[in-house]
Design a protein around this nucleic acid. Structure first.
Lengths: 340, 340
DNA sequence: GATATATTTGTAAACGATTACATATTTATT
DNA sequence: AATAAATATGTAATCGTTTACAAATATATC
């Protein structure tokens, strides 16, 4: 493998000049620039990254710690971060914390060891609760999950508002007993719950909510409970894509048809929500944009460490489908209202 | 930040001893071991990875280059690789080639620059065609995609056999005009096509296949063509999860009910295949196992570079659901057979 | 107890870049 | 033409480890 001194010799210049050319620094004549570039080409020289990182104390690497890689939301965010990072000559180390605070802490330590330029993190609740950017040796941008008072750069959905709109939509469609099944282990789940509660209160309706870990299985179990209760709720709503999937599975297992017997709605516009007849009403998240915004925020923060804290809030879009359709005044609806 | 010499001073030993203790090398007395460990603890010393990598010429990093991170198959594989890698004190650099050979080549170059310990790769067709392990400075394990004669470690499904079994199942259910829509840009798609062709030939049936890029949109378009043709095929089969999704969408759009009007089957047991009534028949891949096997192969190869080439072939499991149900001798079936 | 052998420790030379500083060269100003 | 300022280049120190080699100490063998 060719080294920088080989290139210097070949080009007839000093190693310093080679380094300067490769770093794109000013103060080097066009003629040496050319000769260095030719020599680099001729020898197929590739700088040793370990040496460069040791001396320069920079890694040009960013860490991405997602809470659950199986959640398509995070897959899509990762994709965006990847794309943008490599376009900006940055490497990405991807870590999947699996909603486990310990694993998360471990990975944050690892980021310190790796001396990363910055980190994009979707924190679990405990980590978020005690999160202070100053505790880390690198800039951190939060994504998807963030408290109102967290003093850190962040990119999030308008969770409270989106949940409010989704719930209001269900109410407008004539549903009254709306059960909200949400992931209590994330700030996002809680905020969406808050939006749900507000919407219900605004319309003078009683809230029916179940908090649980945000997994398909937990959601299915939670939905099964609601489904066995009498009176049957008018509608089930889930706080994210995984939960919505669990709810849908539970309804299938209970042989309940939506929206005739029970309505359904939730978050994340995944491909399957259009496939299950007659389609599931959802709040669509601009997932790719969220990832893109996160890395842009991070790159800016790396460039300007002292700049003031920023928060990007993106709007969720309600996509109405058959699962939330208008409840008939007569029929099972009147029964539910009579009993409730 | 504490350095190794600080630890050495604190423990009253030389830097060499500290290094040896931390590397777990033999030939260091228990008493120094203890004192070094205490000093490390006391100073919260963390070795500088850049320096270590420069001097030792090892990175303990593996590269994972997947063809399409949006494909849940690869998400699950990534999860397994991640888990196992970190358990083995290795870092993972994840790259998403997006089925683009150029991007793939770029990432392989990047792996060389990063001086990774090894790479797990699901190659596109062009890369696979000219793939020779000797061309790389690091060991490579192929995953999901591999030719019969590729001389490299690999973990794959029994693609030909699985497709044969899936097709045979459809035939046993009374379907005759079976259209196979497959991704022609991957070895896997081609092998599954081969299994389909063999099964059809065995039963003296004419093959009806469409080759296309393995995306949801392309699959939907391809399915739309089949659906508009007369006679209508008896069944549609897709060569992976993304394609199967596209086929299902196309049937929905054309308002064709399965299995009554047309049967459906494919690869990858994704959660939604159980949700769309009456369930979609699929070959399930042991995705997590595939990832796990890949990294195990890689770690072994790193430990024993000269050991002979290994291939792990995992068996796909047929999961019968309603979408492939028995075709009635009478009705639309007879019409299709009369016209075919 | 002397010698040979095995074990433990320390010193200093790598690893391959970047960059501070000094020096040489060119250009501008008088 | 002499001086000042700006630009271009080179030399050598440095980043923080690992590890080859030498030296010192402990253990075994006679």
């Amino acid at each position: 493998m060719a080294q920088i001194k080989d290139v210097a010799k070949q080009a007839g210049v000093s190693v310093a000049s080679v380094s300067r050319v490769l770093a794109g620094h000013a103060g080097v004549s066009e003629s040496t620039r050319q000769r260095v570039l030719e020599a680099v080409q001729a020898l197929d020289y590739r700088p040793d990254l370990a040496a460069r990182r040791l001396r320069s104390r920079r890694t040009d690497t960013i860490g991405l710690i997602v809470s659950d890689i199986r959640n398509p939301f995070f897959t899509e965010v990762s994709r965006a971060v990847e794309d943008m990072a490599y376009q900006n000559r940055m490497r990405v180390i991807l870590c999947n914390a699996d909603e486990d605070p310990d694993k998360e802490a471990l990975y944050l330590d690892l980021m310190r060891d790796e001396n990363v330029s910055g980190v994009i993190l979707s924190p679990t609740l405990p980590t978020l609760a005690r999160f202070r950017p100053r505790d880390y040796s690198f800039p951190v941008v939060l994504v998807d999950r963030c408290d109102r008072d967290t003093a850190a750069d962040a990119v999030v959905l308008d969770n409270v508002d989106s949940a409010y709109r989704l719930t209001s939509h269900l109410i407008e469609q004539g549903h009254r007993r709306i059960a909200f099944i949400y992931g209590a282990t994330s700030a996002t789940g809680r905020q969406r719950h808050e939006g749900y509660v507000t919407a219900m209160a605004t319309h003078g309706l009683e809230t029916l909510a179940t908090a649980m870990p945000a997994t398909i299985d937990a959601a299915r179990a939670a939905a099964a409970e609601w489904v066995n209760r009498r009176p049957l709720p008018d509608a089930l709503a889930g706080s994210n894509g995984l939960i919505l999937l669990g709810l849908t599975e539970a309804l299938r297992e209970a042989h309940l048809r939506f929206p005739e017997q029970i309505a359904l709605a939730g978050f994340d516009d995944l491909p399957w929500t259009r496939l299950v007849e007659p389609g599931v009403t959802v709040i669509a998240q601009p997932t790719y944009d969220i990832g893109q915004a996160a890395i842009e925020l991070l790159l800016q923060r790396i460039a300007h460490p002292a700049q003031s804290v920023r928060r990007v809030v993106l709007r969720g879009e309600l996509r109405e489908r058959g699962s939330s359709a208008m409840r008939k005044p007569a029929g099972s609806g009147s029964k539910a209202m009579a009993e409730g």
